[in-house]
């Protein structure tokens, strides 16, 4: 049986709907939730590929500790998707491999 890694919106939070862009698709999110939560609710099943072996990884701790949720947010690489709240029109992409040191400056 193929498994789907997805979360349901079990409790309605009544916050405003926002749209964010994730790798050429528009996904729906609720104001006040983190990018990581929005991705879980949309069945996006990995957030980055590791620099060493190219393994897929997805949000793991949701509290900013594990750094598995590193993503590119509005063109800034290596941000923790579990620490940033969604905003209308935000553009989010997966991280593939290591960070480019030139991006730091």
């Amino acid at each position: 049986m193929a498994s789907v890694f997805r979360f349901s919106r079990s409790i309605n939070r009544d916050t405003r709907l926002v749209s964010i862009q994730f790798e050429n698709q528009v996904i729906e999110a609720r104001e006040g939730e983190t990018i990581a939560a929005a991705l879980l609710a949309n069945g996006i099943d990995f957030t980055r590929k590791t620099p060493v072996n190219g393994q897929a990884r997805a949000p793991f701790c949701m509290v900013g500790t594990c750094f598995e949720c590193l993503m590119e947010v509005d063109q800034i690489p290596n941000l923790q998707a579990c620490m940033i709240e969604v905003q209308e029109g935000m553009v989010v992409g997966r991280m593939y491999g290591p960070r480019n040191p030139d991006d730091d400056t």
């Binding site: 890694f5 919106r9 939730e33 879980l40 990884r57 793991f60 701790c61």
Partner: peptide, 23 residues
């Protein structure tokens, strides 16, 4: 992917009202 800490799953519930789907 799909293996998460119980604390992380709890945060998804507390902050976004989410629970895991499927098995």
């Amino acid at each position: 992917p799909g293996v998460m800490t119980a604390g992380g799953i709890q945060i998804a519930l507390k902050t976004a009202g989410l629970t895991p789907e499927g098995e």
